[in-house]
Amino acid sequence: MSGDNYGIQTAAGHLTVAAESKEPYAADVLAGLHEDAAQVVAKYPQKRSALLPLLHLVQSVDGYVTGRGIDFCAEVLDLTTAEVSGVATFYTQYKRHPNGEYTVGICTNTLCAIMGGDQIWDEVSEHLGIGHDETTPDGKVTLERVECNAACDFAPVVMANWEFFDNQTPDSTKQLVDDLRAGKDVKPSRGPAKVCTFKQVSRVLAGFHDGLADEGVGAGPASLEGLKLAHDRGWTAPDGKSGETATDDQQPEATSNETAAGRHTSTDSAANAPDEAVDDKPATLFDENEKNGKDS
């Protein structure tokens, strides 16, 4: 890692977490975390299901998933620190070393790559003097090589804290990272009027709305072209049963004011039922074999 404050990686790639990441939270910070965590946990039938947003909550305070953050999540959710660490090291949005104020992800997957993504990566990496998952010495920008930014219709695409910057070039991306490092407000191609900081975005991902969800354009013209073409030609989707096109009177109606027509609610599986005890042993193939009197 570049800089003295942004983690140490061994040649084998194992991260050495700084000792200060394990220092206890200040009393007021810990009280605020518990208050926020209670709101998050209350949304889930099983509190362990709140682990993902709680890890984002920790990042909104510390800027990454610290050792003390791991302990906090484990204590609140009645999990082991190993269970929490296993999740925190699985998903790339969780950082186990200090992250920059802005994460800039350059897509180098197939379409973006051939449209210039590889060149953007090479030039911006050289421009900043850092590689993948490394942070500038000023702590402003962490650079990532991304497999897909989910916006192929605007390739090559760059994201800053998961806000879209479409149809990029090496020069426009270098200007983007320079502006971010200079503390300027940077407006993405779509979405809110400016890119929020990593900590601010982490709080949103934890489930605390910032009021910017409906600000700016959500989908650009390229994304809507297929829908426009379907409308112009009168195309509709089949009903999924006979293969015939569903007419208006065949379309399912909304079941409540919370569920749109043709949609269904997201429900918890039986493994996450509200009355399931935390220590309940999940059913396994071996349990079923025992019931049937069979050997495993």
Rank of each mutant, 00 (worst) to 15 (best):
R96D: 11
Q119K: 14
L77I: 00
T80Y: 06
T92E: 15
T103C: 12
L111C: 02
E101Q: 15
E101T: 07
T103W: 06
D122I: 02
F90H: 13
V84D: 11
D118F: 00
G116E: 00
R96Q: 13
T108S: 07
N109W: 04
E83H: 06
D118E: 14
F90V: 03
T81I: 03
N99P: 01
Y91M: 14
Y102D: 05
P98R: 09
A82Q: 13
D122T: 11
V87I: 09
Y102P: 00
Q93C: 15
G117R: 01
C107T: 04
N109A: 07
V84E: 13
E83K: 06
G86H: 06
A113R: 14
I120C: 04
V84K: 02
T80N: 01
T89R: 09
A82D: 15
A82K: 10
H97I: 11
D118W: 03
V104Q: 07
K95E: 12
K95P: 02
Q119Y: 06
V84Q: 08
P98S: 01
Y94S: 07
T92A: 11
L111F: 13
I106N: 03
T108Y: 05
I120E: 11
E101G: 10
N109H: 13
S85L: 10
A113S: 11
V104Y: 04
L77N: 04
P98V: 08
F90E: 14
T103D: 12
V124T: 09
C112S: 08
G100S: 05
T103L: 15
M115C: 10
L111I: 11
W121P: 03
G116K: 00
T103P: 00
A88Q: 03
E123P: 01
G105M: 09
I120L: 04
H97N: 07
D118Q: 12
Q93N: 15
